[in-house]
Design a protein around this nucleic acid. Structure first.
Lengths: 202, 202
DNA sequence: GATAAGAAAGTAATTAATTACTATCTTATC
DNA sequence: GATAAGATAGTAATTAATTACTTTCTTATC
């Protein structure tokens, strides 16, 4: 919804396109984001998009790369200097929630991409993202077990699934109420239950 | 994928349409289910569908009614004769998981419908379904608190959100691996952590 | 109880929109 | 003034929905 159709370099235009998609996903159903809608949002003609992307799939691929890079980066930075594995998990949780609150369209896109039957490049990127996410969690869980912070009988896989599901539940709740920002308020309350579920009995 | 294009009564045809959509959603992305695809799956011409539904939205509405009715019915039946609130919650959980395993397309459709920006009749049905679901959970949580089975300091709302999120996490995991049936195996493991999170310290 | 009339269900072809994508011309910028 | 970026104006394919027509089923009447 800008006004001047400024000429941008190819790199800048690609980035602007990705950011437009992220913004649009916050407002509407990701599957309804057409190339015409993207172009309109950035005050460009639809055909011009194909100067910078070979096809629509490539746009989605770039978007998923953007998301994976930013999210994992922030996750990793959030645990810096935190010794306690449990505290690190909480930091990751809150960072993730903050990321979602800033970019409400992201979880919709991720889930929408996972829904697809075919294995598109974008879908594979999402699968890789969540896999890497799970690896980080698993590492922390192991540390927490030997640490004594987490229950020694904890099921790692189930704990990882539930961690991600906890965030997914918050997202679903925000879709239900239409109020994405409330997720910031609800997140600590839900994580408290999760922490109790995985923590040691001390 | 039938063979004879038998003539059905309007009621029977509407039910067959709904069941076809449920089946198709298990195989492909719900948003890609076209009226032509539905018709082909039930060996009918595309136009014939509009003898029984005014438009496509009405088909989705009927599908959501089917889902809401069946799921809530099974949930309610599953708690019959169970006195312990915690055991009742576990029964609901397992019943829900079994329902999803039988109809893998259902959670995709529900989430896809929630994604939509506009408030369609189908979306409102999903919202009502989850609201009623939450009411049942809340009731059990209250009973569990006075019972002593659940932590007296438990946050009801957060516990409800996490309950649904836990299932959502299992669904996401099944989308990731492509193996929907594994949800039956993972469900008890994940619920064990959840139960620990909400239970009393005894 | 046979059967004709009408209702109900289905077919096949076509519609207007919308989609992703492309070919060709124009212009801003270095 | 060369060239990269954008505009303009298309394309073919797909979509939900509608049309005119046909087949099948139901039921009222003799």
């Amino acid at each position: 919804m800008n006004e001047r159709p400024k000429k941008l370099s190819a790199d800048a235009r690609r980035l602007a396109t990705v950011e437009s998609v992220i913004q649009l996903a916050a407002l509407q159903n990701p599957v309804e984001i057409t190339t015409a809608a993207i172009a309109k949002h950035m005050n460009l003609t639809q055909g011009a998009l194909f100067r910078h992307f070979p096809n629509k799939e490539a746009i989605w691929q770039s978007v998923m790369e953007w998301v994976a890079e930013r999210l994992l980066n922030r996750i990793d930075r959030s645990v810096h200097g935190i010794d306690s594995p449990l505290a690190a998990m909480e930091a990751i949780f809150m960072t993730h929630v903050e990321f979602v609150a800033e970019h409400p369209g992201v979880p919709r896109m991720l889930f929408g991409e996972l829904q697809r039957a075919e294995s598109t490049p974008a879908k594979r990127l999402v699968q890789t993202l969540i896999q890497r996410y799970g690896e980080r969690l698993n590492h922390l869980i192991e540390k927490g077990k030997s640490n004594g912070e987490l229950s020694s009988s904890l099921d790692n896989e189930a704990a990882s699934t539930l961690f991600i599901g906890t965030i997914q539940g918050l997202v679903m709740q925000s879709l239900l109420t239409g109020d994405v920002q409330r997720i910031r308020h609800d997140a600590p309350r839900v994580f408290a239950i999760y922490r109790r579920g995985i923590g040691s009995d001390l």
